[in-house]
Amino acid sequence: MTAPLLSLTWTDHVTGRRGFLVVDRLVRGVASGGLRMRPGCTLEEVTGLARGMTVKEALHYDPEARYVPLGGAKGGIDCDPRDPAAYGLLVRYLRAVRPYIEAFWTTGEDLGLTQDLVDRAAAEVGLVSTIQAVYPLLDDEAAARRRLADAFAVEVDGIGMGELVGGCGVAESVLAALDRAGMPYPGTRVAVQGLGTMGGATARFLARAGLTVVAVADVRGTIADPAGLDVDELLAARDAYGTVDRSALRPGLLELPGDAWQATDAEVLVPAAVSYAIGAADQERISARWIVEAANMPVVPEAEALLTARGVTVLPDVVVNSATHAWWWWTLFGDIGPDAQEAFAYTRRSMRALTDLVLARAEADGSTPRAAAHAVAGDRLPLLTERFGSYR
């Protein structure tokens, strides 16, 4: 496996906590990937995430589109985002990596952070934007920045587009897999781990498509109802970190341990929270037919091999959760405008086509969807190198 282009570890002089930045690859001199904050974050984790971003970007390469994918990168900070010291740590981290953001790393929210918080900290350290490195690649920077700002201002039912589009993409991947298998939406049961930005939006779109969400898990445990949960009720009762206020829910719901979502009697499991959520021992409890990786790297490789051996399909993160960052670039480069209907339609078409392509490749190759996704990306990366040159 090729080593990343850049890998660094930063130690905060105030708290002693560590932060990481890994740039896996540059395309046109720029790399893209979010910044996460979670306790226990490691350099190894961030390296895997950066490599995954390279694949996600390549999977969305369309030579006819205005958006041409970038390279892959990722940042991480080892800290609980609820810690009172977290914001100051974020500011100091961004101050330390500011030269990289100005030169070639475009970043944004990831696990544990919101875009508003990242933007506020970035402004405090004097950054124009966390994606300013891409500005020289735009045909009309002012128009592009205005278009993206307008898109972030769009709300649907009181929720911003930036919070919804990723879940729309995850849901479309689920629906594409169900359609290929001839599974009707009504009666298909779903369990979701994590009710933050990605998990909440995914649950919302799947419920509105007619699937039944029977369990959701947050840091306080699993909430379940075999007859189906009221997703809107759950979303209305969650805080900024995706934790649901149990006292705001209707009586009669089951309150189970935090890992009970894995053993839920459901056809689809959606891990949408932390990495490494399903290990080799955990997979023994899973009876679902599909695991859909809305989070980054939630299924460890050994667990995936065991799941595959007994007929469980893992739809990989590099496909499933790629719509969030793609929507930024589709909007910034001008493939779509700042309109909710246009964004959702474009996201659904793109994610449907990508999921179908990967599943068809897996079937043809006799491989897993993850191997097929990497094979498709492997076909496209040389095309990017041929067009723009190599930055490795």
Rank of each mutant, 00 (worst) to 15 (best):
Q115D: 13
G194H: 09
G160Y: 05
L21F: 12
D83A: 04
A277D: 12
V214E: 02
Q132F: 10
A177I: 11
L306H: 14
P298C: 12
R98V: 03
D157E: 15
G258Q: 12
G279Y: 11
A203W: 00
G108I: 08
V170W: 06
H374L: 13
V376M: 11
E293M: 10
A360Q: 15
L6A: 13
A207Y: 02
G221W: 03
Y61F: 15
M1F: 09
R189Y: 05
T331Y: 01
V118C: 13
G166Q: 09
A177V: 08
A3Q: 14
G34L: 08
A177H: 11
Q341R: 14
R95C: 05
V46D: 03
L195P: 05
R17E: 13
P69N: 02
V165P: 00
R310Q: 09
L113D: 01
D150N: 08
R289G: 14
D24M: 08
L249G: 04
L315I: 05
A326V: 13
D119S: 13
H325V: 14
V190H: 00
A217T: 06
E342K: 01
I336Y: 01
V22R: 12
L26C: 02
E233I: 09
A181I: 03
D282V: 07
R36Y: 05
F344P: 04
G167L: 06
A96R: 14
G187F: 07
V270L: 04
D139Q: 10
D119Q: 12
G112R: 06
A263V: 02
L195M: 14
D339A: 12
A58C: 07
L127G: 06
F104N: 10
L359D: 06
R25E: 15
T15P: 04
R250S: 09
L354Y: 01
D335Q: 08
A50P: 02
E57R: 01
V156S: 04
G33T: 01
Q341C: 10
M351W: 03
V292L: 03
V91C: 11
G366I: 05
H13K: 12
L235S: 02
I131P: 00
A65D: 07
A177E: 12
A151W: 15
P186I: 06
A209L: 05
G311T: 06
P69F: 02
K74D: 04
A373Q: 10
G126I: 09
D12T: 08
A237V: 06
A103Y: 08
T106F: 06
V97L: 11
A266P: 03
I159T: 15
I77D: 05
V190E: 00
P298Q: 12
I101M: 11
G182P: 03
Q341V: 13
D110R: 12
L306K: 15
T347C: 15
G76R: 10
R95Y: 07
D356I: 09
S173L: 10
D119A: 15
V128T: 14
G75F: 04
A224C: 01
L164M: 06
G71C: 07
T15F: 06
G252D: 01
M37L: 07
A343V: 03
A181N: 04
V118F: 05
D157Y: 07
G221M: 07
R18A: 12
G52C: 09
G48T: 01
G228I: 01
S287H: 15
A153H: 13
A263N: 03
E57H: 05
D150M: 09
L5N: 08
M161E: 11
L6R: 14
A240T: 10
A181C: 05
L234G: 07
